[in-house]
């Protein structure tokens, strides 16, 4: 076993090469996974903020629609259209 780790006297060159490769590849994987998890958590948080408000406003505009033409609700609901905003 010590013979294996000695690498025929070249241990100081062989093991750092394998170590660096492992470090870079595992590090990149970890950073990428962390970035993905954080981005997906932010998406969920933002959708959580948005959805109830939009539902509330939709209900509100339904009730007010009968007796006013409510010109001010039309532009406010425009940027929150769900189908257009979610997927490009």
């Amino acid at each position: 076993m010590t013979e294996f780790f000695a690498m025929g006297g070249y241990a100081a060159f062989v093991w750092p090469a394998y170590g660096l490769a492992a470090l870079v590849l595992i590090g990149l994987l970890a950073v990428s996974l962390k970035g993905l998890r954080e981005a997906e958590a932010t998406v969920r948080a933002l959708e959580g903020v948005r959805t109830p408000r939009r539902r509330a406003r939709a209900a509100h505009s339904h009730t007010t629609h009968s007796h006013t033409d409510s010109p001010h609700t039309a532009p406010s609901s425009a940027p929150g259209l769900p189908g257009k905003a979610s997927e490009g």
């Binding site: 970035g35 981005a39 998406v43 933002l46 959708e47 929150g80 979610s86």
Partner: peptide, 21 residues
């Protein structure tokens, strides 16, 4: 990483629409 980039795009549009709201 591509999935993370797509999520970032989605965050941008969501932030924009939340700011609009």
């Amino acid at each position: 990483r591509l999935r993370a980039e797509l999520a970032q795009r989605k965050i941008q549009t969501l932030r924009f629409s939340v700011a609009g709201d």
